[in-house]
Design a protein around this nucleic acid. Structure first.
Length: 424
RNA sequence: GGACAGGUGGCCGAGUGGUUGAAGGCACCGGUCUCGAAAACCGGCAUACCGGCAACGGUAUCGUGAGUUCGAAUCUCACCCUGUCCGCCA
């Protein structure tokens, strides 16, 4: 969520931000309405608070008189009348504030200066690593995976539905290896604190990171309990310190966790649906960082490096893509996607998306820090990134490390947990 | 799921209708003292919003929401959470 002051003092900047996302048309009316409501709200507040101050004086007077055992009927009647006026004024203020909040919660973050304007066609490849393998002679992952008994797509569909996968044997073991290898790397070498978090979270948590109220249809939920299955562990991790004030000395903080992720993928039917490329439930190791807004961009570069390290150790060629404003997520101010080349599909697959959200999420979730040397609390800057998403890494691995006889070489990085050099 | 008990500031902890944003203590910050430190003493120390260039003034906040009242941390109701015991279950 943006600061209301944005609507007040930097409204052109806000409009420009929407324009860069290609969404000015969509949000022009919203911004105008917010601006008007803010004025209206402030006028009402001033008026109501004036009445309240008057009533408080009368009330104090009543107290004094009663204590002195004197007649207090007159101020009591006056206070009662004021109370009715206040109630009437608040009856209109309430809906105004509710509507204003609703509008503000629906406006996406403004991207940083170096984010290209426009839609995804303006995305920029900033660097790449490794050499993509030629597509010839490589079988797609669903063929190799099924042939080697690592994947059971049919039974996944039987048990749960399309978009749900059963991994088995060495395939299941490979996913466990991903978890161990990635978490050990992030905690052991990059200083992340490992967490194990709930996958079912409440409405306030989903609102804190920006999934709600706008994207309720994209999520699985448990209606009876008003709980939601997380689309990423960014959600519980970023909300860990909701409504808290940290010390500046504690920043930056870095967390990593393995979790299941659930996505309806509504509206993306037919896209990348072969094999495990787009599924409703998958696992992922996530990285989340808290820092000051000033540290945000540098922390993003650092975190992208951590995700890249995983790909390098897996020996998978990848490229780093700076997303254009229009392709940048709702809460994000700048996002790098890491894409691995899949020779079987002949496409680059997004295996990580690393974002800096400035204080956008922190303002929603009310996560602050006390500046060194005192002063008013400030909102933290939150970052999140996958490090990495399992299914697509699995797919890329089966294809990229595929050998002529159909077997798959296991990268050194995973061998301690897979327990062998080759899966055949 | 059932029965009790309880939720007050960073922490502990008073407070059961009238200057209580809230005693006291701890922690923390500044100062005095000291060669330095500790101790002692003095002072400071919540957050958000509204108005104001500012100084400052106002409003709200004692789990959350509603209600009673001229007035609620204190009374009523609902919900949430925590603890203990019982039942059930991985």
């Amino acid at each position: 969520m943006h600061d209301l002051r944005m609507v007040r003092d930097q409204i052109e900047e806000l409009r420009a931000g929407m324009r860069r996302r290609g969404k000015l048309e969509q949000f022009a009316a919203v911004i105008d309405e917010a601006e008007a409501l803010d004025l209206q709200r402030r006028a009402s507040i001033t008026a109501v608070e004036e009445k309240k101050a008057q009533r408080n004086q009368l009330t104090a007077e009543v107290g004094r008189l009663k204590k002195a055992k004197q007649d207090a009927d007159a101020p009591m009647a006056a206070a009662r009348a004021l109370g009715d006026e206040i109630a009437a004024m608040e009856a209109t203020l309430g809906p105004t504030e509710a509507r204003l909040t609703e509008l503000m919660l629906g406006i996406p973050n403004v991207t940083l200066a170096d984010v290209p304007e426009g839609d995804e066609s303006k995305n920029v490849v900033v660097r790449s690593w490794g050499t993509p393998r030629a597509a010839e002679s490589v079988k797609p992952h669903w063929e190799v995976g099924t042939a080697l008994g690592l994947l059971d797509l049919e039974r996944g569909a039987k048990v749960s539905g399309s978009g749900f996968v059963v991994y088995r044997g060495a395939g299941a073991r490979m996913l466990r290896a991903f978890a161990n290898a990635m978490l050990d790397l992030h905690t052991g070498e990059f200083g992340y604190e490992e967490l194990w978090v709930p996958t079912l979270v409440n409405r306030a948590t989903m609102t804190g990171t920006g999934q709600l109220p706008k994207f309720e249809d994209d999520m699985y939920g448990v209606k009876d309990d008003d709980l939601f299955l997380i689309p990423t562990s960014e959600v519980p991790i970023t909300n860990l310190y909701r409504d808290e004030i940290l010390a500046e000395g504690e920043l930056p903080r870095a967390f990593t966790a393995l979790s299941a992720c659930f996505r309806r993928e509504a509206g993306s039917a037919g896209k990348d649906t072969r094999g495990v490329l787009r599924v409703h439930e998958f696992h992922k190791v996530e990285m989340v960082r808290y820092c000051t807004v000033e540290q945000g961009e540098a922390q993003l570069e650092l975190m992208v490096g951590h995700a890249e390290a995983v790909l390098q150790r897996l020996g998978l060629p990848y490229r780093v893509v700076l997303l254009a404003a229009g392709d940048t997520g709702f809460s994000s101010a700048k996002t790098y996607d890491l894409e691995v080349f899949s020779p079987g599909v002949g496409k680059w697959l997004e295996v990580s998306s690393c974002s800096v959200c400035t204080d956008f999420q922190a303002r929603r979730a009310n996560i602050r820090y006390r500046p060194e040397g005192g002063g008013k609390p400030k909102f933290v800057c939150t970052l999140n990134g996958s490090g990495l998403a399992f299914p697509r890494v699995f797919a890329a691995l089966l294809e990229h490390h595929q050998q002529a006889d159909g077997s798959v070489a296991v990268p050194e990085f995973l061998r301690p947990w897979v327990g062998r050099d080759v899966i055949r």
